[in-house]
Amino acid sequence: MNRPARLVAVALTVSTALLLTACGSGGGDDSSSDKIKGADAGGEKASASASASAPAGQDAAGRPKITLSREFQANFEGWTNSDPKLQAILNDGREELRSEYAAVIEADLNSSAVAFYNSDATLATAHKWIKQFVDDDESLIGSVRAFDPQVHINDTGSGVLFYCVDERKASTKNRRTAKITTTADKPENVIQYRNRLDKNPQGVWKTTSSTVVPGACG
């Protein structure tokens, strides 16, 4: 997937200022409210992998059904939490990532699912990320592993979701030539996402800021 060279550079253009503004409106040193603490993880680190299908109970909010190609798998490990509010953030955060993978695979620059899970602040960057693949006539094959999700709700009511994605078993495949480009087995291809999400009136946790840090997951 060559993400560190080509894709992370795009993702990093999302302003980190949006993430930092979720730290609270009061005075003093409240910057920790958007940082994941070990204790905040609670019971979400279940050993079983979460289902790759869309979470149940989505119809009321109109959540789109997202389907990935048989050639590409996104495996989510430990994406469960005993707190329903935190589980809702995990569910919508997971579907946001899956929507972008699906858009790349379908070469869909105007994916309604990507727009559904992203705010105006992050949609333009998501579009750039997808456009790189579409312009190069590439799809995704192989698999990624999304793991170690850490989630909490900060002082302003925003959701903060950190998680890791191991892309070392994923590749790109040219639609025209069928040429496959594999992802290097390097630490920087295990990426940490640091997202902020805000709940809209329909109850959907939309991603409102996103920062990616290659190699941060160790």
Score class of each variant (00 low, 15 high):
Gly218Tyr: 05
Ile105Pro: 02
Ala102Pro: 01
Cys23Gln: 00
Val212Phe: 02
Lys169Ile: 11
Ser69Gly: 08
Pro55Gln: 05
His127Phe: 00
Leu18Ser: 09
Ser99Tyr: 01
Gly28Glu: 08
Gly62Tyr: 15
Glu106Phe: 04
Pro201Glu: 06
Ala5Ser: 10
Asp29Lys: 12
Asp148Met: 09
Gly28Trp: 09
Asp108Thr: 07
Asp83Lys: 00
Ser53Cys: 08
Ser15Lys: 11
Asp92Gln: 14
Ile89Arg: 00
Lys85Phe: 02
Thr67Leu: 10
Val204Ala: 02
Thr80Leu: 05
Lys131Thr: 11
Gly62Trp: 14
Ser33Val: 11
Ile191Ser: 06
Pro4Gln: 00
Ala103Ser: 11
Arg168Glu: 04
Ala48Ser: 15
Lys65Leu: 15
Val213Tyr: 13
Thr125Asp: 15
Gln202Cys: 14
Ser158Glu: 15
Val104Ser: 02
Thr181Ala: 12
Gln58Ile: 08
Ala146Cys: 13
Phe133Val: 03
Asn118Cys: 11
Thr122Trp: 03
Gly26Trp: 06
Phe116Met: 09
Pro214His: 04
Ser99Ile: 01
Asp136Pro: 04
Pro149Val: 04
Ser119Cys: 10
Asn91Arg: 09
Asp34Phe: 03
Gly203Cys: 08
Ser15Ala: 14
Arg196Asp: 12
Ser47Ile: 14
His127Asp: 06
Ser47Met: 15
Gly203Asn: 12
Ala113Arg: 01
Asn110Gln: 05
Arg145Ala: 02
Ile141Val: 06
Ala121Ile: 03
Lys85Pro: 02
Gly57Thr: 06
Ser171Leu: 03
Ser143Arg: 03
Val144Asn: 00
Val212Ser: 01
Arg168Asp: 00
Lys173Trp: 14
Gln73Met: 04
Ile105Gln: 09
Asp30Pro: 07
Leu19Ile: 10
Ala146Gln: 11
Lys131Phe: 07
Gly57His: 08
Gly42Cys: 10
Arg175Phe: 10
Ser15Phe: 10
Ala60His: 14
Thr67Lys: 07
Val14Arg: 08
Arg194Leu: 13
Ser210Cys: 13
Lys45Gln: 15
Asn81Ala: 05
Ser112Cys: 07
Thr182Asp: 14
Thr13Leu: 00
Thr172Phe: 07
Ile130Pro: 02
Ala107Pro: 02
Asn174Ala: 08
Gly27Val: 00
Ala54Thr: 10
Trp205Pro: 03
Phe147Trp: 08
Ser143Ala: 04
Phe116Glu: 01
Ser112Ile: 05
Gly38Ile: 07
Ser143Cys: 02
Val8Cys: 12
Pro201Ile: 08
Phe147Ile: 05
Arg70His: 07
Ser143Phe: 01
Ile130Gly: 03
Asn2Arg: 12
Pro64Trp: 01
Val134Gly: 11
Phe147Asp: 05
Thr21Arg: 11
Gln192Glu: 14
Leu140Ala: 03
Ser82Val: 07
Glu96Gln: 14
Pro187Gln: 04
Leu7His: 03
Gln73Ile: 03
Ser112Tyr: 05
Ser31Glu: 11
Asp135Gln: 15
Thr122Leu: 04
Ser171Trp: 02
Ala61Gln: 07
Gly93Cys: 04
Val104Cys: 06
Ile141Thr: 04
Lys169Val: 10
Tyr117Ala: 06
Ala61Lys: 08
Val213Phe: 13
Glu95Gln: 06
Ala107Val: 08
Gly43Pro: 02
Thr67Ile: 10
Pro84Tyr: 09
Glu96His: 11
Ala178Asn: 15
Asn118Lys: 05
Lys128Leu: 12
His152Trp: 01
